[in-house]
Design a protein around this nucleic acid. Structure first.
Length: 316
RNA sequence: GGCGUCGUAGCCAAGUGGUAAGGCACGGGUCUGCAAAACCCUGAUUCACCAGUUCAAAUCUGGUCGACGCCU
């Protein structure tokens, strides 16, 4: 089987993925496939730091700005869409570059995890959540113990309702335990040959400073106005999770000062970055780039170029 | 200068005689259909300092220092 070649740029928010990926695309005749769960939405621009047309400088981007905020989205859908986009780019004889901070999307796509059709059952999910509310989460844990002891062992400690519900939901709708499904999908061979680069800072504070500054800039660029608009529209569950709007709501509603809300927004963005870092840290394939050492996109591109040449990754 | 209130972890804070709640931040982690989600773990041999009372003090007494408020 011929492996499809591609490049991946990952990392926490505000680490500089966008400009790096665009420069790489210019250098290697590439096109970009976003792996960002929020930039998919139209009208959510400032908060998601969606690249502008000018920033994109003619490089084609996929999976950005194509969904209305009232539409839901999910990993399963992403794997499907990203695969199509990558194929399209390869057909054009160009290099696909996956770029984004949504670790689950990236990993699921690269590893070809197949999200079994019809394994999602929203009504059942709601029912199970209701049981948890009324009878307590232990009731769900008991159910899980009976159908999938392995999942139970993994989940009972953290008591994470969302995961417990999904495990039960999966079994009831497919007849297969989620443990079996996970094992099966781990055997899938990736159809991609890729090099994955990760952006981080050797000094965490360096990243945090960038985040804080970027939030200030977002405010200057009219985040409050955007928030008013987004918050007044119909939001899907996915879109409503975006960082940047709900934190400003108390101010918009006149219940808190702008300063307080901005602080909250910064803190939550930092938390998000930390979680992203925790996710990506586990991936031993990542070539890490410290943005406090290679501070310019140019330096980062040169470094990556060195690795690509060294690996003989691109040669026709 | 006098009077009063206060001083507990990086921050907020409970505790008024029986051996330091809680929240936030920070740090670490989990992760297979909402993932910018959801969830888990983690901190004071010590309560501004010194002396005293007591079997026992963050808690009571005296003093010192510091903060704030009021008065002169």
């Amino acid at each position: 089987m011929i492996m499809k070649k591609l490049l991946v740029v990952a990392g926490p928010t505000a680490s500089g993925k966008t400009s790096l990926s665009i420069e790489l695309a210019k250098l290697y005749n590439g096109e970009i496939v976003s792996a960002d769960s929020m930039q998919i939405y139209k009208g959510m621009n400032i908060a998601t730091a969606k690249p502008s047309d000018i920033e994109m400088s003619g490089i084609k981007h996929y999976l950005i700005d194509f969904l209305e905020p009232n539409e839901s989205y999910s990993v399963g859908k992403y794997v499907e869409d990203a695969s199509k986009a990558v194929d399209k780019i390869i057909e054009k004889n160009k290099l696909p570059i996956i770029c984004g901070g949504t670790g689950l999307y990236i990993d699921s796509f690269l590893n070809g995890i197949d999200f079994v059709d019809n394994s999602a059952n929203l009504e059942l999910r709601a029912e199970l959540n209701k049981i948890a509310e009324e009878k307590g989460i232990d009731c769900l844990l008991k159910m899980l113990l009976e159908i999938d002891p392995y999942s139970y062992m993994r989940l009972h400690e953290q008591r994470n309702q969302k995961r417990i519900v999904r495990a039960i939901e999966f079994y009831k709708t497919t007849g297969m335990t989620i443990t079996e499904q996970n094992e099966k999908s781990r055997e899938n061979e990736s159809e991609y040959e890729y090099l994955i680069f990760g952006l981080k800072a050797s000094d965490r504070q360096f990243l945090y400073d960038r985040i804080n500054k970027r939030v200030d800039i977002m405010i200057e660029n009219g985040l409050v106005e955007e928030a008013k608009e987004v918050l007044s529209s119909d939001l899907s569950e996915t879109a409503s999770k975006a960082i940047g709007y709900k934190q400003l709501k108390p101010y918009i509603d006149g219940e808190a000062s702008l300063e307080e809300c901005i602080e909250k927004l910064k803190t939550e963005t930092r938390h998000y970055a930390k979680r992203q870092l925790t996710w990506f840290k586990r991936n031993k394939d990542i070539f890490w780039i410290n943005i406090d050492e290679l501070t310019t996109t140019g330096q980062q591109v040169d470094y990556i170029k060195g690795i690509i040449e060294n690996k003989g990754f691109i040669n026709g």
